[in-house]
Computed example of a mutant assay.
Amino acid sequence: MGESLHTVTAMPTARQAGCPFDPPAELTEARRHGPISRFTHPGGKPGWLITGYDLVRSVLADSRFSSRKELLNVVDFEIPPAPPGEFLLMDEPQHSRYRKPLMGRFTVRRMRLLTERIEQVTTACLDAVEKAGPPVDLVSAFAKPIPTIVICELLGVPYEDRGSFQEQIDAFMGGETNDEELIAAYTATQNYLEELVAAKRANPTDDVLSELTDSDLTDEELKGISLILLAAGFDTTANMLSLGTFALLRHPDQLAALRADPALTGRAVEELLRYLSVAKTFMRTALVDVELGGQTIEAGTTVVLSYHTANRDPERFTDPHVLDLRRQDGGHLAFSHGIHQCLGQQLARVEMGVAFPALFERFPALRLAVPAEEVGLRPETADIFGVKSLPVAWDA
Rank of each mutant, 00 (worst) to 15 (best):
M1Q: 15
G2Y: 12
G2S: 15
R15W: 10
R15Q: 10
C19S: 12
F21S: 09
F21Y: 15
E26F: 04
L27F: 14
S37H: 05
R38G: 15
G44V: 06
G44L: 07
W48T: 03
W48Y: 15
L49K: 15
T51E: 00
Y53G: 01
R57P: 11
V59K: 11
R64D: 15
R64F: 14
S66W: 02
S66A: 07
S67T: 06
I79H: 08
P81E: 00
A82Q: 12
P84A: 01
P84K: 04
L88T: 09
P93R: 14
Q94P: 00
R97D: 02
Y98K: 00
V108N: 07
R109W: 05
R110A: 06
R112Q: 06
L113W: 06
L114M: 12
T115N: 13
T115H: 06
E116T: 15
E116N: 12
I118H: 01
Q120C: 10
Q120S: 11
V121A: 09
V121T: 08
T123E: 12
D127K: 04
A128F: 04
A128S: 05
L138W: 02
A141K: 03
F142R: 12
A143T: 06
I146M: 02
I149S: 03
I151T: 11
V157S: 14
P158K: 12
E160K: 02
D170Q: 13
A171R: 12
E176Q: 07
T177W: 04
N178D: 15
N178F: 02
E181S: 04
L182R: 07
A184P: 07
A185R: 02
Y186I: 08
Y186A: 15
T187P: 03
Y192C: 10
Y192F: 15
V197W: 08
K200H: 13
P204V: 04
S210R: 10
E221W: 01
G224D: 03
S226A: 15
L227W: 00
L230A: 06
A231M: 08
A232H: 01
F234C: 01
T236M: 10
T237P: 09
M240W: 05
M240F: 15
L241A: 04
S242R: 00
D253F: 05
Q254T: 13
A256T: 15
A257P: 08
A257Y: 03
L258Y: 10
P262A: 11
R267C: 14
A268E: 09
E270N: 13
E271A: 13
R284W: 05
A286E: 02
V288F: 04
D289E: 13
L292Q: 13
L292A: 06
G293I: 01
Q295V: 09
Q295C: 11
T296S: 08
T309K: 13
R312P: 12
P314D: 09
E315L: 02
H321F: 08
D324K: 09
H332Q: 10
H332R: 14
H337G: 00
Q341W: 00
C342D: 01
L343I: 02
Q346N: 00
Q346K: 00
V354W: 07
F356A: 06
P357E: 02
A358Q: 12
L359V: 04
L359T: 05
E361P: 09
R362K: 14
F363L: 15
V370H: 01
G376W: 01
R378I: 01
E380N: 10
T381P: 00
T381F: 08
F385R: 13
F385T: 10
F385I: 05
K388P: 01
S389R: 09
